[in-house]
C-alpha cells in the first residue's frame, strides 16, 4: 500500500471526520443557545434569522476557496488531514506555509508524497497542530478576564460617549486597507520596483466587487429592496470573481 493510499484510508477519514463532527456539534450548541438568548432578551426573531441567512450566504464562496486549499494539500498529505485542518482551527493562508515549513524540518526537500513516510507525516501533522493551537489556548486562559476588562472600560467610556464601536470599525478599515495596499504594491512592484508588471487581477476584482456592493447598497437603501442585504456580500464577491475569469482571458 503506498503512502497516499494509507493517508486516504478509512481509519484516517474516521479519526478526522469524528473531530469535525464534534466541532459541528459545538457550533450547533452555540447557535441554539445564542438564538434562544437573543429571543429571551427581546431581539426580533426575523432579524436573528436574517443574520443566520446572510452569514450562511456570506460564507459559501470563501468556503469553496478553502476547499481548494484541501485539494492543494491532498496531493502530499492525503485528503482527511487537510480536510480536518481547514474545517477546524486552520486558516487557508497559514496551512500551506506551515505544512511546507514542517516538511523542511523533517528533512524533506519539498512537501510531496514522493518523500513522505508515515513518520514524516505524523511529525508534520503534530507540528502543524502545535503551531496553530495558541489562539485557542489563549482563549481558554484569557478570554473571560480580557473581555471583563474591556467591558469595564466600555462602561466607563459609554458614560463619556463611547469609542469602542468606532475603534472596532477603524480596526477593520485598517485590515482591509492592509490587504488592498498589498494588491496595489503587488501590481506596482511585484516584479521589481515600479515595473507595473505584477498581477492586476486582484485590483480588478476589488474594483468590481466594490462597484457591485455599491449597486446592492443603492438598491437596498434607495429602492428599499431590503432583502438584497442578505446576499449583497456573496453576490458582490461572485461578480468580482467572475470579473477575474473574464479579465484573465484578455490579459
Amino acid at each position: 500500500m503506498n503512502i497516499l493510499s494509507l493517508l486516504n484510508s478509512i481509519p484516517l477519514y474516521g479519526i478526522c471526520g469524528g473531530i469535525i463532527a464534534f466541532v459541528a456539534v459545538v457550533c450547533v450548541i452555540f447557535l441554539i443557545r445564542a438564538y434562544r438568548a437573543g429571543v429571551a432578551i427581546g431581539m426580533d426573531q426575523t432579524r436573528l434569522k436574517q443574520v443566520i441567512l446572510s452569514s450562511a450566504t456570506f460564507s459559501v464562496l470563501p468556503s469553496v476557496g478553502i476547499l481548494l486549499g484541501v485539494i492543494a494539500l491532498s496531493g502530499s498529505l492525503g485528503t482527511p488531514w487537510p480536510w480536518l485542518r481547514l474545517s477546524v482551527i486552520g486558516a487557508l493562508h497559514y496551512e500551506t506555509q506551515v505544512a511546507q515549513a514542517a516538511a523542511e524540518q523533517v528533512g524533506m526537500t519539498s512537501l510531496s508524497a514522493r518523500e513522505m513516510t508515515p513518520q514524516n507525516f505524523v511529525t508534520i501533522a503534530l507540528l502543524m497542530s502545535i503551531c496553530i493551537i495558541w489562539g485557542m489556548a489563549l482563549s481558554v486562559i484569557f478570554n473571560k478576564s480580557y473581555l471583563k476588562k474591556l467591558q469595564k472600560n466600555t462602561r466607563k467610556e459609554s458614560s463619556q460617549g463611547g469609542f469602542g464601536d468606532q475603534a472596532m470599525s477603524a480596526m477593520f478599515i485598517g485590515l482591509v486597507s492592509a490587504y488592498i495596499g498589498s494588491y496595489i504594491g503587488g501590481f506596482v512592484s511585484g516584479n521589481g520596483l515600479f515595473t507595473f508588471s505584477g498581477s492586476i487581477l486582484p485590483l480588478i476584482v476589488v474594483a468590481v466587487s466594490g462597484l457591485a456592493m455599491a449597486l446592492c447598497l443603492y438598491l437596498s437603501e434607495k429602492k428599499k429592496k431590503v432583502w438584497i442585504d442578505s446576499f449583497s456580500i456573496a453576490g458582490s464577491m461572485l461578480l468580482g470573481m467572475a470579473a477575474a475569469v473574464i479579465a484573465n482571458l484578455y490579459l
Binding site: 464562496l61 476557496g65 476589488v206 449583497s232 464577491m237 477575474a244
Partner: peptide, 25 residues
C-alpha cells in the same frame, strides 16, 4: 479557466467590504 476566480476570493471579499466601510469613513 476558473483558477483566477478561486485565487481571488479574498480580494473579492475585501473589495465588497471596502466599499461598505470606506464610504462613510
Amino acid at each position: 479557466v476558473l483558477q483566477p476566480a478561486f485565487e481571488n476570493v479574498v480580494p473579492a471579499l475585501f473589495g465588497a467590504m471596502a466599499y461598505k466601510y470606506f464610504r462613510g469613513n
